[in-house]
Design a protein around this nucleic acid. Structure first.
Lengths: 127, 127
DNA sequence: CTGTATCCACGGAGATACTG
DNA sequence: CAGTATCTCCGTGGATACAG
């Protein structure tokens, strides 16, 4: 899936090809560092723009807005603007967003579980 | 995890800080499109460089080698060189690599499950 | 076949400033 | 506070050529 396999044997089914290209597009959107970190940071909480900026270590203003727009566009986060002054904008994961989060959690868990193995592998490789 | 939280309240524990920065590094390595697609393509199989190049749609020679080195360095893939002519190099997921693959599978599954929702969300957003 | 190196262009991403 | 816009620069990544 998302690789060539999905296409095999059905090279002329236009619908399937569209679905697959869409899937690749979404995968590219979602499979990037900042998007995943934002999703992980949001979790079950609702956070403001500035709070998110603090939670996601090292992200720039620009990358944050950019990724938030992307996530909103794909329906992964909900954006709620409070028409106050100064403005207050809150971001929350939608249901699909929360569903994806469990996968992100898995990656985070995996990372911590294998820290040791990886550190050792690196030592060996760099030698 | 992988965000600021891990550090909270323990700003001076050097070991934890090292572990956390290492975790971020690994996360950045792993949370990128090509790395995940390679892992997904490998699955339970053993593939040669050129086979991998065919399986991972759109990846360039350079990106493939680069990511394979990275994955090898982190101990996620095993690289076996057959000293024949022409050379034959085979790549296989290690145990940690296969463990991560289940998370990647989850993301792929999620993608296909939510194609419809996302397409509709996009339609709304773009309007 | 696989891998490394070089060149180069394009776009990603930071900094900054400004608006609502 | 949140968002957009502009400018600029550096690095990513593609193309190409060559080596083992």
């Amino acid at each position: 899936m998302v690789t060539k396999q999905l296409l095999k044997g059905l090279p002329e089914d236009a619908d399937l090809r569209r679905a697959d290209s869409l899937a690749r597009e979404i995968f590219s959107d979602v499979a990037n560092k900042w998007a995943l970190l934002i999703i992980e940071a949001l979790g079950e909480r609702t956070l403001r723009f500035s709070e998110l900026r603090n939670e996601v270590e090292g992200i720039s203003h620009k990358m944050l807005t950019q990724n938030l727009r992307m996530l909103e566009r794909n329906g992964l986060v909900d954006r709620k603007v409070h028409p106050t002054v100064p403005p207050r904008v809150e971001y929350t994961l939608t249901e699909p967003g929360r569903a994806l989060r469990t996968a992100v959690d898995a990656i985070c868990g995996w990372t911590h579980q294998h820290l040791g193995h990886i550190e050792r592998a690196r030592g060996r490789f760099d030698a």
